[in-house]
Simulated scan of single mutants.
Amino acid sequence: MNRLRTPLGPLDTAVAVAMIFAWGFNIIAMKIIVGEAGALPSAMLRQLIVLVVCLPFLRIVPGRMLALTGFGLLSGACFYLAVSWSLAVADNVGALAIAGQLGVPFSLILAVLILKERIHWRRIMGIILALSGVALLVFDPEAGKEIYGILVTALASLIWAFGALIQRGLNGVPVLTITAWVGAMGSLAMVPATLIGDPAGFAAIPDLPLSAFGWVAYAAVVSTILGHGAMAWLLQRHDVSVIVPFTIPTPVVSVAAAAAWFGTPVTPLMMLGGFIAIVGVGIVALRTAKVDGPVPEATKASNVPD
């Protein structure tokens, strides 16, 4: 049953802010893990931890297993492999954080092409702004050096967008069950992929410093499980249109955190491109939330991007 919108309380706001920073700082954790372990082992370790933590929630959901396994393979294997790959080939991860915002407009474009959804001029303008903001990065001397990483990040965003379409068919499935299947399918795919693609990296996992395992635990537990769990909790209590604006500042936190931690430059053109992209994503997200309106209780917990 749909509910009327309720105001945010201090606890809700605190959880939302914690969620923003959990996701925003994740780019630091992922870059360090990839640097220590390599792209394939880091993606594998993350999914193994997600699986272990969420294993009690792994269960067969009749009528949803095709969607769960497909979503798990896309989000648990393909998406994180592309993200790790992009971090492995790039130094300025702030540019990647901006390019990572393409998932929202990509998902809307796919909804129009595949699901034949109709959109109006405001969301079309949002898509154009988001794409234009990322395109500006190519003309920046610093961000332009990361064109390969930006393209791989765009691929990761496209994979995420396909996963988001599949996730629409998972309404009513508990978010921790979805996350458990992401960990399970991601682990099933990434373990053999790492053994074949990077056997030396796989063999070197026991020799990784404890700090590396700490960072991968942060990515798996704090960002993936707790971050998305916080989103699900907030969506159970409030309408989508109330919560969506809290996700928009995440790339700003990521860019600032990367600049502070790694000393990566943030140029005026990067700031302009990032601002334009975030405005575009904000328009798409906010207009989509208003179009969707209030969502049923069972639906809210599962409408969380991985």
Rank of each mutant, 00 (worst) to 15 (best):
V138A: 14
M190H: 03
G227V: 11
D239C: 11
I98K: 10
S254F: 05
I278G: 06
A298Q: 06
M19T: 03
V291L: 09
T177V: 09
A161Y: 02
R3P: 11
S107E: 07
V252G: 00
L11V: 13
I127Q: 02
L58S: 04
V266D: 00
G63I: 10
D239A: 10
A43K: 07
A37T: 11
A90K: 08
I178V: 14
L74G: 03
R46C: 09
L210C: 08
G70E: 04
T264D: 04
L155D: 05
G186P: 01
W233C: 14
F262G: 05
A256D: 01
P105F: 05
G144S: 15
P296Q: 10
N303S: 08
I205D: 12
L158I: 00
A220N: 02
L158P: 03
S254H: 02
K116M: 01
A77V: 12
A88V: 04
F79H: 11
P209R: 09
W215N: 02
I178G: 07
G126Q: 06
V222L: 11
L210W: 03
A298S: 09
P56V: 12
R122A: 00
P41G: 06
W261S: 01
R59S: 09
V216C: 15
L131E: 08
F262P: 02
A257L: 09
V281I: 02
S223V: 13
T179S: 10
L58T: 04
I243Y: 00
R123S: 13
A180R: 03
L113N: 03
L113V: 14
A184G: 11
P249D: 10
V252R: 07
V52C: 12
P62D: 15
V221G: 13
G126H: 01
F213R: 11
I166Q: 13
G186E: 04
M19G: 02
G149M: 04
I109K: 10
L137I: 12
I159D: 06
S84Y: 10
L208H: 15
A193H: 00
V93G: 06
V152L: 15
L195Y: 11
L195S: 13
I49S: 14
T299D: 15
P209K: 12
L137Y: 02
V53N: 12
V191L: 05
L11E: 05
M185W: 08
F139Q: 14
P41H: 02
A111E: 04
A193Y: 00
G38R: 06
L210E: 01
A77R: 12
P10S: 04
Y148W: 13
F139D: 05
P192E: 04
Y80R: 06
P245N: 06
D91R: 02
L235W: 03
G183H: 08
D140N: 13
S241L: 14
W160N: 06
F71E: 04
V222E: 09
M65S: 07
G263S: 15
G76I: 13
A277N: 04
T267N: 13
F71D: 04
G201S: 12
T247S: 10
I60F: 13
S254I: 07
A164M: 08
A285Q: 03
I178Q: 10
A29R: 00
T179R: 07
A88R: 11
T299A: 14
